[in-house]
């Protein structure tokens, strides 16, 4: 196994005529924690969502553990989009987990059932083992006393912690966070960030798209600043957030200077 978990080459994403991601190259090392920042509409979420194929890349390649995903194909617009079978995508998604801005919990299942669902239907884990693993993950995010509650009865912060437990239960090699605190009330942000921080300490490979620059600074080994669908500037958290060298990064960060890192 190589040191690189994910390698993206020349990633493009178009939505009709809208060209959102315009050729991104990125390597993610095992155990690395990357924060992806940028203005709204810069394409940062789309890049993340291409990594577990929530969005299908219009062009470019993605390697996972040194294995090139998909097979060569041709998109309708004549681009060199690769084709992916459903079974391959499902397998990739069990290895690259995701936590969404809107949680996307299943409202008709209890907290415990939400976390057990992937284990049972996808990994075919026996019920008893799935239950104990799910309970364990929920304890980790501090929700051991909410096992039988329905998501609708929980606060936003609690729901997001369930979503994190659900992703963790699959034991993914890489965990993607798509603005996990953006739809939370300010007083609930802290509890979610603490959970993510604890995972970082465990040495998990994680990519985080966020507007919480202060958190990004403490969380990330590396910060990637996205502008106009390309990697505009990248480096250590210190480099990019404290001493940005490029003009647009500086302009973007100027709005946050009053914040202490």
């Amino acid at each position: 196994m190589s040191d690189t978990v994910i390698r993206i080459r020349n990633l493009h994403k178009r939505f009709g005529d809208l060209h959102v991601v315009k050729g991104v190259d990125l390597e993610v090392k095992r155990g690395e924690r990357i924060a992806i920042i940028g203005a709204s509409g810069s394409g940062k979420s789309t890049i993340l969502r291409c990594l577990n194929f929530m969005e299908m890349p219009s062009d470019g390649t993605i390697e996972l553990d040194g294995k090139l995903l998909g097979t060569e194909g041709r998109a309708n617009d004549g681009g060199a989009a690769r084709t992916y079978s459903e079974s391959e995508l499902c397998e990739v998604r069990t290895r690259v987990g995701m936590v969404f801005q809107q949680f996307n919990l299943f409202p008709h299942m209890t907290v415990l059932e939400n976390v057990m669902e992937g284990l049972i239907t996808v990994k075919r884990t026996p019920k008893g083992a799935a239950r104990s693993r799910a309970t364990e993950q929920l304890a980790k995010v501090g929700l051991q006393d909410k096992l039988h509650a329905y998501p609708g009865k929980l606060s936003g912060g609690q729901q997001q912690r369930v979503a994190i437990a659900r992703a963790l239960a699959m034991d993914p090699e890489v965990l993607l966070f798509d603005e996990p605190t953006s739809s939370l009330d300010p007083e609930l942000v802290g509890e979610v960030l603490r959970v993510i921080h604890a995972l970082a300490e465990e040495g998990r490979t994680m990519l985080l798209v966020t507007h919480e620059l202060g958190f990004a600074y403490h969380f990330a080994d590396r910060v990637v600043f996205i502008a106009d669908g390309i990697v505009y500037e990248t480096g250590t958290a210190d480099d990019v957030l404290k001493h940005p060298t490029k003009e647009r990064t500086q302009a973007f960060l100027a709005r946050f200077t009053e914040r202490a890192f």
């Binding site: 577990n52 929530m54 459903e86 079974s87 995508l89 499902c90 397998e91 998604r93 069990t94 987990g97 995701m98 969404f100 809107q102 949680f103 996307n104 919990l105 299943f106 669902e117 992937g118 239907t121 996808v122 990994k123 979503a163 659900r166 992703a167 699959m170």
Partner: peptide, 16 residues
């Protein structure tokens, strides 16, 4: 759509 995505993200197929 989030429900489809939530399920997809844990590796569930369309049928599942």
């Amino acid at each position: 759509r989030g429900q489809w995505e939530g399920a997809k993200a844990i590796g569930m197929t369309r049928a599942m």
